[in-house]
Amino acid sequence: MSKVNPPRPAAKRGEPADAGRRSFFSWMSLAWVSFTASMLAAGTATARFMFPNVLFEPPLTFRAGRPEELQVGIVDERFKDSNQVWLVRDGGGIYALSTTCTHLGCTPNWLSAEQKFKCPCHGSGFYITGINFEGPAPRPLERFAIDLADDGQLVIDKGRKFQQEKGQWELPGAYLEF
């Protein structure tokens, strides 16, 4: 701390203490700029704290058994709970459907009698292909990348998704031809 100010003769009224004023401003602005900067840095650091570097969720890529285990026209629900994926085999190949409704993220049910996915939250309906046809869902269910590993097992990569409305279902990986 600076020393106590010795009593000085009172300055004359109206005398602008210019010299003092200049350094007053530079020190003060330096102080407040760096203080604000530190607060901003600390604030962003705190925000960053909320995003951990790892995720304790099932890995995005997983093996889903051999293609022969799937029957044509049957929706395979084995990976619904663990990985949020339906596997469907049709006449030509296999695709992996996301179990997340495109409306508000509920998990639809597969109704095999009606041959459709029906979402319990707001009634959206999807065909077995994932195309939406009723209810409020704005777009079809998403598909995940599917491939065949060297050991003959299906590999689903949830990190890559394909949206029909963007024409991505035609891309390689969206559909495993068989």
Binding site: G20, A31, S34
Partner: peptide
Amino acid sequence: LNISQRGDRLYTDNGLHKWFAISSLLLF
């Protein structure tokens, strides 16, 4: 009147600013 030159002050403003500036810089 320039407050820092008044008798009823313990510290000068400039001194306080200086201290604050240095500590804030350190903090940054």
